Simulated assay, not measured.
Amino acid sequence: MSSDSFIFDIFRTKTGIDTWKKKMEKKATYLVRDEKRLIVDPSWDAKEIDTQYYKLLLDKAYEEIVRMLPKSSSRSN
């Protein structure tokens, strides 16, 4: 048994949700409800999201993108 199968079996046992249904295409997706308490919800049944967590992710992504952009050269008018 692969480790992925084992993890999905535990998830299925604890939640009663069959992640192997065709509509899921064997991919479990989730949204973070509370980062500090490590609580997530399946994307198809999300109660709420941790907006501070997602803002932090967006801020980090923005900084990474800005660093990759070429430095602007000063133009003389």
Rank of each mutant, 00 (worst) to 15 (best):
Arg12Lys: 14
Arg37Pro: 06
Glu48Phe: 15
Ser3Ile: 12
Glu48Leu: 09
Ile49Ser: 06
Phe6His: 04
Leu69Phe: 09
Tyr62Asn: 08
Asn77Pro: 11
Ile39Met: 08
Val32Pro: 12
Thr13Asp: 08
Ser3Leu: 13
Glu35Val: 10
Lys71Cys: 05
Ala46His: 02
Tyr54Gly: 05
Ser73Phe: 00
Asp50Phe: 03
Lys47Asp: 01
Ser76Lys: 04
Lys47Glu: 01
Ile7Lys: 15
Leu57Glu: 08
Met24Gly: 07
Met24Lys: 08
Thr51Cys: 00
Ile17Arg: 07
Tyr30Ser: 05
Gly16Cys: 02
Ile10Ala: 02
Lys60Gly: 03
Asp4Ser: 14
Leu58Tyr: 13
Ile10Met: 04
Asp18Gly: 03
Trp20Leu: 11
Lys21Arg: 15
Asp45Ser: 02
Arg33His: 14
Ala61Ile: 07
Thr29Met: 07
Ser3Trp: 09
Arg33Phe: 11
Leu58Phe: 14
Thr51Lys: 08
Ser5Trp: 09
Ala61Gln: 08
Arg12Asp: 10
Asp41Pro: 05
Glu35Pro: 00
Lys22Arg: 13
Trp44His: 11
Asp34Pro: 09
Ala46Thr: 14
Leu56Ile: 04
Lys60Pro: 04
Pro70Ser: 12
Asp34Thr: 05
Val66Gln: 09
Arg12Met: 10
Ser2Met: 08
Tyr30Glu: 06
Asp4Arg: 15
Arg75Met: 01
Leu58Thr: 15
Val32Lys: 09
Val32Ser: 02
Lys22Glu: 13
Ser43Met: 04
Glu64Met: 01
Asp45Arg: 00
Lys71Thr: 05
Val66Leu: 10
Leu69Asp: 07
Thr19Arg: 11
Trp44Ile: 03
Thr19Lys: 08
Asp4Gly: 11
Ser76Thr: 01
Lys21Asp: 05
Arg12Tyr: 08
Glu64Phe: 00
Leu38Ser: 13
Trp20Gly: 12
Arg12His: 10
Asp34Cys: 15
Val66Ala: 10
Ser5Glu: 15
Asp45His: 01
Ile49Ala: 04
Trp20Thr: 14
Ser3Thr: 13
Gln52Tyr: 10
Phe6Asp: 04
Tyr30Gln: 06
Lys47Gly: 03
Ile65Asn: 04
Leu38Gly: 07
Ser73Cys: 00
Leu38His: 13
Lys47Thr: 03
Asp18Tyr: 09
Glu48Gln: 12
Lys71Arg: 08
Thr15Cys: 04
Glu48Cys: 14
Pro42Asp: 03
Leu38Gln: 14
Arg67Asn: 08
Asp50Ser: 02
Asp9His: 01
Ser74Cys: 01
Asn77Leu: 06
Met24Cys: 12
Asp9Pro: 00
Ile17Val: 08
Lys26Gly: 11
Trp20Lys: 10
Gln52Glu: 14
Asp41Trp: 01
Phe11Tyr: 15
Asp18Trp: 09
Tyr54Glu: 01
Pro70Thr: 13
Lys14Trp: 06
Asp59Pro: 03
Lys71Tyr: 06
Glu64Asp: 11
Glu48Ala: 14
Ile7Thr: 14
Asp45Pro: 00
Ile7Asn: 12
Ile65Tyr: 11
Lys47Pro: 00
Lys21Ile: 09
Thr19Leu: 12
Pro42Asn: 03
Asn77Lys: 06
Asn77Gln: 04
Phe8Thr: 11
Lys36Cys: 07
Asp4Ala: 13
Leu38Thr: 09
Met68Gln: 12
Phe6Ser: 07
Lys21Phe: 09
Leu58Gln: 14
Lys23Val: 01
Met68Trp: 02
Arg33Glu: 11
Val66Arg: 10
Arg37Met: 15
Pro70Asn: 11
Val32Thr: 13
Ser5Tyr: 12
Ser74Phe: 05
